[in-house]
Design a protein around this nucleic acid. Structure first.
Lengths: 114, 114
DNA sequence: TCGATATTTCGGCTATCGTCGAATACTCGA
DNA sequence: TCGAGTATTCGACGATAGCCGAAATATCGA
């Protein structure tokens, strides 16, 4: 992942409603949630939420598919992993004890492996 | 970590210069880097960078200490872990294969443990 | 095909963010 | 204590983000 891509993803998440949406979808798993249900869940107007979903989608954090009249949104776990990995890349200057429970994941990013 | 706290941290990181600063400090480890060196590294004016450092500090992502005329900044790894944990909390609806190399870290957050 | 449901797009307004130049604070060595 | 080095604070400006109402698009059931 490149820095501008990461900035875009972080910008997408740096908003109360959008972060709530993303976490909702992360919890929901692959089945996803319909746009209307998301709007009710986070307490946003449908048009405002639609804008938020577009932003999250453009950042690559969520995906969508149509199902009848509804559009189902779901989290993109791979992009999420990439983003987390980018944040901790080459972290802690080779001192694994700093990473704590990041463990195996952190090692994947080049952290603790120097 | 609460949602508003996470939004503040993500907002702090959602900026090219600030993200570059944070990753630089993550790589630097506990020794940290002086403000002036950070400014040179990311190519920002000292006053602009100072604003960015304040924002990162207020979000709890970095810490500072004075050393002579310089002020040394360093990453707060625990806050970073909290933020990552918040993003993946209760993720993937109990299907560990989605998490991949998040492994041990993800389990700590309630993910994959349902 | 028509109306109802579900969602998105558009246009506008306001509020906030990012940047810069200039001025101010803090620390050290002579 | 004075000057140089280091970093922060202040004030102002332009650019961008977020929100809402209204209108448009897409799908389904009768």
């Amino acid at each position: 992942m490149q820095l501008p891509t990461a900035v875009e993803a972080l910008s997408a998440l740096a908003h109360a409603s959008r972060l709530a949406v993303f976490r909702l979808l992360v919890r929901a798993g692959a089945e996803g949630v319909a746009a209307g249900d998301i709007a009710r869940e986070v307490g946003a107007l449908p048009n405002t939420l639609s804008t938020h979903l577009t932003i999250l989608g453009y950042a690559g954090l969520i995906q969508s598919r149509r199902k009848g009249r509804s559009i189902i949104y779901s989290a993109d776990y791979e992009r999420m992993r990439d983003l987390l990995g980018f944040l901790v890349a080459d972290c802690c200057a080779g001192r694994p004890e700093i990473c704590g429970s990041l463990g195996e994941f952190a090692a994947d990013t080049g952290c603790c492996a120097q």
